[in-house]
Design a binder for these strands. Sequence first.
DNA 1: AAACAAACTTGCATTTTGCAAGTTGCTGGA
DNA 2: TCCAGCAACTTGCAAAATGCAAGTTTGTTT
Lengths: 126, 126
Amino acid sequence: MWPDFRSQCPVASALDIVGDKWTLVVLRTIFAGRHRYGDLAEMPEAISSNILADRLERLESYGLITKAPYQQNPVRHEYRLTKRGADLLPVLQQLATWAARHIPGRWSAPRWFSEGKPEDFYPAKS
Amino acid sequence: MWPDFRSQCPVASALDIVGDKWTLVVLRTIFAGRHRYGDLAEMPEAISSNILADRLERLESYGLITKAPYQQNPVRHEYRLTKRGADLLPVLQQLATWAARHIPGRWSAPRWFSEGKPEDFYPAKS
DNA sequence: AAACAAACTTGCATTTTGCAAGTTGCTGGA
DNA sequence: TCCAGCAACTTGCAAAATGCAAGTTTGTTT
């Protein structure tokens, strides 16, 4: 379930889960409503396919997303946020707020993002 | 000043600055009042000295911290947050909140951290 | 003059990331 | 039936980032 943590510091531990170049970008894309591998692969940042596959697997193993079939013949799966994953929304919002304030020329975040709440992004039961 | 950004997405761009294993952990340690290289090197997560030196240099080049002498003979420097760096506090707070909620056994954050505001951590002029 | 200390720096091994091409399972058309 | 096509990965290898231990620099203390 969890990786080895560097310490019991909550900040450092959170970063042991999401502290790399791609994990939070993948989550952002799922928040944006892209749930299939192909949709995710087309994100504007051009992630490599092996990295995307690896991050989806890790996110699932950490319980931040689920992988479930949405059709048969052929079987296709979709990736959805769990409560644990959706609860990272405030982290993404604060990163976006910081970037908007300090880096010129960023896109402005859409309202569903800046005003959204974690509960808006996962089904009641998960 | 800035690196090459993967896109103009504010989330992805913020992560182009702080999205690695160590940058935010170093910033957390500076927020905690450790301002000298030696103090930082003793953080509980055991960062390598070359990585620490590299991150301090990058943080300075991005304008998130400053390096200034605090004594002569021998000259010694200290690292302080700028406004731009201190404004990352909400990101750290949200990471800590998430970890406290979802990862068992984390240390609980001290009050100066969870209730602090960016302005508490940089001198009025910087 | 020799030992000491802080703050890095260097060399090299290991791990992670990036890129391009290849594979698998299934479908729909000729 | 056979083959082109597509989604969703997987594989092999090169490049970059990270980790570890030892070394260097500059000035201080004894």
